[in-house]
Amino acid sequence: MSVKPILSIKNLKKTYPNGVQALKGVSFDVKKGEFLVVIGLSGSGKSTMLRCINRLHEPTSGNLVFNDGKVEKDLAKIEKPAEIKWLRQNVGMIFQHFNLIPRHSVLSNVLMGKLSKTSTLKSLFGMFSDEDVAEAMKYLKLVGIADKAHIRADQLSGGQQQRVAIARALTQNPQILLADEPVASLDPATCHVVMDYLRKVNQELGITIVCNLHFLSLVRQYATRVVALKGGELVYEGDPKNIDEAWFEKIYGAGAKEVHIN
């Protein structure tokens, strides 16, 4: 028996207003519960693809069929604000530069994850329910940063900020977590801490992860499956262990050298 994929991307295309074709028809499936890593050079369309999935960017054409076993919906066809809200509740995201609100406290940042479920008026006065606050604290504990809840977000280190961002995304109770280069602006040691938390989220909470990464060594360590993009097209799909020298050159171009981080 085959389980339907939680997200099925079909012929996804994106052309920017300036004429740049970022995605030239990408198709692949995201299976429920997997840790899928997307690799490729800068400009290969990885970030664009993630932003098309949660509609921060508008896909030009193609389908993004979401199916969690209860609801089946094409994310690319959604238009109403209420549906966009529903989509963002189910698909959380973390970013390379964390994208926290610098002047707000860590807790207030994590509570942003509840904005979609709080009425506009209440949220403008910062009136989040006690349950919401308790849930936010729960996820802050999960990423090991609960003691910093009342510190301003811009006073944390990069790695801590990324953990706050993970907690914020978890507070949305998503089924899929998109991660756009989550460790690209962190040092190698912190990098593993953040990746370990992502694995924990994946394994303990069962949240499906789609993660853009640069470093192949990280890919081999954390990914359960890999897809590779090159120039807006899918060039590889499979097991991370099968990426050999030849594939590496195909993805990153001849003459590229693999960099290891420990």
């Binding site: 604000p81 509740q89 994208n99 609100i101 610098p102 002047r103 942003m112 403008l124 914020r168 995304a169």
Partner: peptide, 26 residues
């Protein structure tokens, strides 16, 4: 950055302005 961050949480236009833009300009 913060605008994308807050939008990715499903915030509507008013919430995005209030939480992502206002703290930066106050």
């Amino acid at each position: 950055g913060p605008i994308e961050g807050v939008q990715s949480c499903g915030a509507n236009k008013l919430q995005t302005i209030w939480y992502a833009i206002v703290p930066q300009v106050v």
